[in-house]
Each structure stands twice: as structure tokens, then as C-alpha cells.
Amino acid sequence: MAGKPVLHYVNARGRMECVRWLLAAAGVEFEEKFIETPEAWEKIKNDGSLVFQQIPMVEIDGMKLVQTRAILNYIATKYNLYGKDMKERALIDMYTEGIIDLSEMISQLVLCPPDQKDAKIALIKDKTKNCYLPVFEKVLKSHGQDYLVGNRLTRADIHLLELLLYIEELDSSLLSSFPLLKALKTRISNLPTVKKFLQPGSQRKPPTDEKFIQEARKIFKF
């Protein structure tokens, strides 16, 4: 019997958080090995584990997978969260790429210089309300189903829930005009595996703050 997946990353959201979400939603227990010192970073870089000298890295099924999208694709396929055919997978990929685009814009706010932050937040709010959320609201309205693709849970729904929670952290009023997305958020949040992940004490990470950024600069020397 294969052991639990092992996630190698820092103790923060970053590019690993969507992997944590996907595993948790699939009901898969996982372990984490945090990189917390420059020495630990040098060790994992030099031991041959990182194909491109980058994290995240996930040990799963005898492999050491890197590159976030490759990791997510494997997990989604393994746990039947990637649609039933090529057409569904294409839609899932399309929606997921849009979700990632906006998620990365939000996650990078912590790196924004103070004198540019207000303008950046205003831009993100505008794109959230007028570009990204209308797309997903329209998809749900067009087919009248509970999930984005194929009327069953896929990785796209899980990634979207993660994004909606980030949007609420930024400004909860942004969701007020999107009743179908609010309903999807509630529906998926109440799935047993997801509900467990949302409880205090889970492996879900809090928002990244300036203190962590300073710690990361010391670890990765940037």
C-alpha cells in the first residue's frame, strides 16, 4: 500500500495551497515537509529531487513531481476530478487557467510596493467584478447545474471555491452580485472533505503576510 503523499514547500500558501486543497477535497491525507532554513533549501536542491530547481514538489506514487500544473493534473486524474472525456477536460482546463490568473494576482499583492498597492487592489477588484466572476456566474446560469462541468465535482469547482474565499478576504462585497457563485461556495464548502479542510487546525494555510515574506527572503536569498 502506497504511503501518504509528501508535500515539500514552505509553511505558507504560495503555489502549494491549491495542491493542498485538491488533495483535501479528494479525501487524501498528506504529510508536509517544510523548508525553513537556507540549509534545508540547499539540501533539497542538491539531492536531485527538483528537476528544475524549483518547488513545490510532491512525492506521490513513487514519483517526485514538480511544476504546479503537472502536480494538479496528476492528482485530479488519479482521484477522478478531471471530467469524463476530452471535452470536459478542455473546459476544466480553461476555467482553471482563468482561476489561476486571478488567484496569482491576489496572492502577489503582498509583494506590491506600498505606494502602488491601492491602485493594484483597485485593478484586481475591477477585474474580479467585471471580468472573472461574471464568466463563472454565466456558466452556472447557462446549464442550471450544481457544478461548473459535467454536473459533478471537478478540480475546477475546488479551485474556484479557493479563489472565492481569497476574494472574500480581499473584499466580501465583491460576491454580492453573483448569487449562483455564492450558492456554489456554500454547496462545496459543505462537502464533508472540504468542510473538514475548512476547520481550524487543518493543513490549510493563513494569508501570507509581510513577516513571512521576510523569512522567505532569508531562506531563498532573494
Rank of each mutant, 00 (worst) to 15 (best):
L133S: 00
L123M: 13
V194R: 03
I35A: 05
E162S: 09
I121F: 08
Q116R: 10
E59W: 02
T208M: 14
F220D: 05
R187H: 12
L65D: 02
R187Y: 07
M86T: 15
L23P: 00
E169M: 14
H159N: 15
L164P: 00
G98Q: 08
Y166H: 12
G14Y: 05
P200L: 14
V6Q: 07
M86R: 13
F178S: 03
F197V: 08
P38V: 07
P200I: 11
G48T: 13
R217A: 11
I106Q: 04
T128Q: 04
A76D: 03
V110H: 06
A216N: 02
A90G: 08
L184H: 13
L65M: 15
P206N: 08
P134Q: 05
D85V: 06
A24S: 15
E162W: 01
F197Q: 09
P38R: 07
E42I: 00
G83W: 00
N73V: 08
N190H: 09
E97F: 09
S177V: 02
G83Q: 01
Q116M: 11
L81K: 03
L164I: 09
G150A: 09
L133Q: 00
A76E: 05
Q67D: 08
K129T: 07
A122S: 14
C18L: 11
G144S: 08
D146T: 10
Q199K: 13
E168N: 08
L50E: 05
V51A: 14
A156D: 05
I106T: 06
Y74P: 08
V66K: 00
P5G: 05
F212K: 14
Y82M: 09
E104S: 10
Q108T: 12
Y132V: 12
A76M: 12
L102F: 13
N46W: 00
R20T: 04
R152K: 13
D126P: 01
V66A: 12
R69F: 09
Q54T: 14
S172Q: 10
S107R: 08
C18A: 15
G48L: 09
L160T: 02
E97W: 02
G98S: 09
V139D: 02
K84R: 12
E104A: 11
V10Q: 04
L174T: 05
R152A: 11
G48Y: 05
Y79P: 04
L133C: 05
P5V: 08
K78G: 04
K78E: 10
S189I: 04
D101V: 10
L50V: 10
Y9M: 04
I167E: 00
S107D: 12
L174Y: 03
Q199R: 11
E17F: 03
A12N: 07
L133D: 01
L7Y: 04
K211Y: 00
S176E: 15
I75H: 03
I167A: 01
T96S: 15
Y82E: 02
L174C: 14
A183Q: 12
M105D: 14
R217I: 03
G150E: 07
P179E: 06
Y95Q: 02
F52H: 13
K45H: 02
L165Y: 11
P134A: 01
A26Y: 01
W41P: 01
Q203D: 10
K195C: 13
I35S: 02
F34V: 08
K205D: 05
